[in-house]
Design a binder for these strands. Structure first.
Lengths: 228, 228, 228, 228
DNA sequence: GATGAATGAGTGTTCATTCAT
DNA sequence: GATGAATGAACACTCATTCAT
């Protein structure tokens, strides 16, 4: 009859524990179908995608898709699971400290570059997933409410703590840590988006160069160094 | 029988002259219907929107919608016209110089703040329009190709010229002007998006404060001022 | 967009006034489609019927069916309207008295025969309608609740009044008038049903003969006349 | 692989011998599944019932249902077996005579009351079975053809014989024995149906009272006794 | 014998588009 | 020019049935 292994997706994305639990109960078929959905949704958008195409892409029959995900919308909802796990599990588990713990002596530019490079790579590797979700998120607020209300604050808290600590140590100048985070996030996202929309028009160089430049601008600003 | 006043939209968005021409040939009904479409599309997304709802919102019959815009997609295409006109006509007509011409003596922070404020206000005022277009753009590349290929380079050129001149004058330090532009654009867009997604979670202050902080971060970077 | 002239069917079948109102707001298309639905539903049963077949039978497109009746179930609900109007409007409007008013001097057998004949003819003429509704009624109690709770009591009241008056006049012997009504209704329905299921097996004669026999059995019972 | 114990159901319901034979070859699982089907079908109707629900109700897997009954329709067909056995085996085996043999001296009212009470109890006890079959019978004529053509005539013959004998004995007045049977059957069925549709609206009393009244009306008719 | 995952034809319903009035 | 009834292709989802384990 109905398979739909794992708990229902509704309201079960409150925190990482629940998300991991759900993910563990998923079978290979779940992942196989979800990957197909990610591919199709990211290419055509949620509404323009056809469940038949997801099925074909997954190499299963249409009925099977619905055995594993009760509705088309559940496919979208399900994508939050790998997204959150891939992007936040390491961070939230280990804290960002680990990344910065062993920066002994290394210049802050290098450390920030590592950080940005990691996120850029992650975003590039998961671009379809991000595209599928991000493009539909504005129109399904109730679907993503748990993320906004539960997960986002956790992320902000980690980020804030990181910036605050560094500011106290004097690594960064003292500004609103959330502003610092938003600024970095914006530049990072802006880079990834523009890179994928119109790399030519923006005359983007190879990734490593761009990342270094981005970090440089973020850290030093546009004004001339005053010491000179 | 078919009205569809003005030239067909296809391939007629190559430059501002053509766009203005098309806009002038539009009747009030065109605008009335397009505004309705903007409202509906921005709330539900292009594919989830119903032409019937656009008609109701516009206060006309469904048939009339199709008298003015041959297809649903033409409604989307048509939105590019007010978007481009509102965002770029003043810039491209007068050049950004005008904005900076009369900055005699005013500190660069203030001038940049004016610039950012202007764009933020514009974005806020046209948020539905932006949302309607931006959310569908990734899935209709051919629809937006003329913009990317014709309009975007014009914009980039103006922006580049501005940054370059200022760099030569010493107002800004010398970096890739496109990088400078992308950085500013990213921060600007990031601010507007986050403000509209989750103002609470990001603890956003009143606009003027946020804009000043944003410009400060953009201009000075995150590192402590070295002279101190 | 949506036509669906007339008020929504839900909860609007409380009394004959509302039913008549709804019926008057129906267009020819409504009736055309409903007749087709009656035909199809009565032949295959509600669930086994296909809306596509209803459309074909009505000579309209499938979309048109749903313009006039929002759902397949609404087609079923809509059938109550002609059913009730055809079976009860005359009765409830004029009272059964009219039928019996002018029976001056005529033997009660003849009057009852007229009554039964009228109902049998009506039932025969509306057999598909009855079949379509009656076969689904047991499984859609909420759909027919208004009829059971509002219309049925009205009918029972009229019937009760009729039998009671005749009993007081001495035309009938004094028994529970509802029992008398149920008995007549049962025989009438039983006759119509058996006639349509297996006329051969029940060796049914021509209608007029059967009706006279039925009335005779109903009025005199199975026991021998005691006077003899 | 396929079990489907017992002979195929098609065309094997010609007479009671074959039916009994089939019933004897059925295992407990057959009965278990069939009872579940009766429950589900009687609640939702044949077409609206899901084989998955039958399986769940029977406490077996969906596959098992189809091991015992090749198709969903076979479940319906199979229901004829308990129906016919329960309703007609005793009658046909022993003849109705047995019931009437020992009526020595008892008034005919009492004897008829016994008869009616027996049938009413039987119907009440098997209501789901009757409902499941009766509601689908009009739309599956070929399924029930053997019953109509083979079993029904046998029943009618027994009934006819009974009424005829009693008429010859003078217990009943002489009318068409089939009419007498149809009249009784109608009243009986009408009572059971109305009792289960709307006992309140019909103001039904306790069963024993209703049965006595029903028999009284059937035997004496509605007219006043002429001897008084 | 029992299972239940996989199947895919089939369904009610939607909605962009047309066109007669 | 404006209307809105009619259209029918298309889609999400269902479910009886199969069959490998």
């Amino acid at each position: 009859m109905c398979i739909n292994g794992g708990p229902p997706l509704n309201d079960d994305l409150q925190n990482l524990e629940q998300i991991e639990e759900t993910a563990e109960q998923w079978t290979d078929k779940h992942w196989q179908i979800l990957e197909a959905a990610v591919k199709v949704f990211s290419e055509k958008g949620f509404n323009a995608s056809r469940t038949s195409e997801v099925a074909k892409e997954a190499g299963v029959s249409e009925g099977t898709v619905f055995n594993y995900f009760k509705t088309k919308k559940d496919l979208l909802k399900g994508m939050l699971i790998p997204l959150l796990l891939r992007f936040f599990r390491p961070w939230l588990l280990r804290g960002v400290e680990k990344i910065f713990n062993n920066r002994q002596g290394r210049p802050v530019e290098d450390v920030m570059t590592d950080l940005v490079r990691d996120r850029v790579h992650l975003a590039q590797a998961n671009l379809p997933l991000i595209k599928a979700i991000a493009s539909e998120a504005p129109f399904q607020p109730e679907l993503f409410a748990p993320v906004r209300e539960q997960i986002l604050p956790q992320i902000l808290e980690v980020a804030t703590r990181f910036f605050q600590e560094e500011m106290e140590k004097g690594t960064f100048r003292t500004i609103d840590p959330l502003l610092a985070f938003r600024g970095l996030l914006s530049m990072l996202a802006g880079y990834v988006i523009m890179r994928n929309i119109a790399p030519e028009e923006f005359q983007l160089q190879e990734e490593e160069v761009e990342i270094r430049r981005l970090v440089d601008l973020y850290l030093h600003g546009l004004l001339p160094r005053e010491e000179s």
